[in-house]
């Protein structure tokens, strides 16, 4: 049961990721990417990381994709007018994709990492309570830095996308 579910989710993930890249219309790409993110959240649920799955849906499928869709609509890109790259660079990109894939897969297949068989101790390690303890205990300082980073990113985004007043005058 879980196996079938995994393979369905994996094919959805890979298929929609490819469709994101290959579809000509940016709006369609964004929609496919949302489906891809939802299937990744499904993977998290399969791995029993419920809190992470919910956060993933909220952050990626919610916030980031809305941001991207708004940007696409703001720039009026929802038409298929992108000029293609030259055939040579398309072929080169495809070859590079195949090579990267083959090298990564071969590296993972052939090196035969020492993977001990999965042992379930039954210990609670990924409930929200445990995650909160780790996040605010061991990783307290990085947590604070992440909040500073988000603040700086927000100010930076506003500053960069603001209209230049001197230019208009």
């Amino acid at each position: 049961m879980a196996e079938i579910l995994f393979y369905i989710l994996a094919s959805v993930t890979l298929g929609t990721a490819l469709l994101t890249i290959l579809s000509r219309n940016p709006i369609h790409s964004a929609i496919y990417l949302v489906i891809c993110f939802f299937s990744i959240a499904g993977h998290y649920l399969l791995l029993n990381a419920q809190f992470l799955a919910i956060v993933h849906i909220i952050v990626y499928s919610g916030a980031i994709m809305i941001l991207m869709l708004f940007t696409i609509m703001l720039m009026n890109l929802n038409k298929e007018d992108e000029s293609h790259k030259s055939i040579a660079s398309q072929i080169a990109a495809t070859i590079a994709f195949c090579l990267v894939g083959i090298v990564l897969l071969a590296g993972l297949l052939r090196t035969k990492p020492v993977v001990e068989s999965y042992f379930q101790s039954g210990e609670d390690f990924q409930s929200i309570k445990k995650l909160g303890e780790v996040l605010l205990g061991e990783y307290m300082v990085p947590f604070e830095f992440a909040s500073v980073l988000l603040l700086v990113a927000m100010i930076g985004a506003v500053l960069i996308s603001k209209k230049d007043k001197q230019k208009e005058a």
Partner: peptide, 24 residues
């Protein structure tokens, strides 16, 4: 699975010219 997903991302960066698709 994640190796394949990563190489699909690399493919997108190399293939497209639209900056938003590259972000995706």
């Amino acid at each position: 699975l994640s190796a394949l997903l990563f190489s699909i991302g690399v493919f997108g960066i190399l293939l497209r010219r639209n900056a938003i698709i590259m972000f995706m």
